Computed example of a mutant assay.
Amino acid sequence: MKKLIIIIGVILAGYSSRSYAQIAAAEAVKLVVKKVIKAIDLKVQRMQNQTIWLQNAQKTIENELSKFRLNEISNWSEKQRSLYDKYYQELWKVKSTITYYQRIKDLTLKQVALVGEYQQAWRLFQSDKHFRPEEINEMQRVYLGILDASAKNLDQIMLVVNPGKTQMTDQQRLEAINQAGDRLDENYGDLKQYNNQNIILSLHRSKDLNEVKTIKNYYGLH
């Protein structure tokens, strides 16, 4: 009897240590996710500020450009025409370097949407009884991977936008932004696909039509 108690105690201790280890790992992942989201929020705020600056700069330049109708001015000397033509061309050059602000704005909104999709899905999956605790923990790890990848793509975009940190032509800069933006689009697509897969799994685990209907309503499916 004493041996049996000892054996049971050892088994329970083993389960307990594994359980504590799983909980500790889950909490560690949760903490990292929070840090990543906080970092993303800061990056998004900086990108929004950068977008506003670029938008205002573009408006200013367009206003300046509208003042010069070089071909319509007939009484200027060649020297005046040459001087203002050079200024005019410089304005166009600057204007061309900030035309990518709309792309940056779109990518900022995409990142905000990605985090929002994650937060909503994570809240719902945690309360869905069709998923085991270890499955919820695995979901968190997958989400961490997607969020971390999107944060790195934001870093790349911000690095390219800052002309003081990168030596690029305007075309190279725009191409680099588009490449990072395409990867961010992939991150968003991966997140939505993963969410859909988990919803489908929950529906498959439903016991009857009433439960299926309940789950559909729970996830806002119609």
Rank of each mutant, 00 (worst) to 15 (best):
L4H: 03
L4F: 01
A13P: 05
S17R: 04
S19Y: 07
A21Y: 03
Q22T: 14
E27R: 11
E27Y: 04
V32A: 09
K35G: 08
D41V: 15
V44A: 05
Q45D: 02
Q48M: 13
L54T: 09
A57T: 15
A57V: 10
K59I: 11
E62Y: 00
E62S: 06
L65P: 02
L65E: 02
K67I: 09
R69C: 11
N71R: 13
S74N: 07
W76L: 15
S77R: 07
K79F: 04
K79R: 13
R81S: 06
Y84V: 14
K86G: 14
Q89P: 09
E90D: 14
L91G: 08
T97N: 10
T97Y: 00
I98N: 06
Y100R: 04
Y101H: 15
R103H: 03
K105H: 02
L107H: 03
L107D: 02
K110P: 01
Q111L: 14
V112S: 05
Q119K: 12
A121I: 10
D128N: 12
F131D: 11
N137A: 11
N137S: 10
I146N: 01
I146A: 02
L147M: 12
K152T: 10
D155Q: 13
Q156M: 12
Q156H: 12
V160F: 02
M168S: 12
T169G: 07
Q171T: 15
Q172W: 04
A176D: 01
Q179F: 04
Q179Y: 04
A180I: 08
R183Q: 07
R183K: 14
Y188G: 13
Y194L: 15
N196Q: 11
S202I: 04
L203Q: 12
H204P: 08
D208N: 15
V212S: 02
K213A: 09
I215R: 07
G220A: 01
H222N: 12
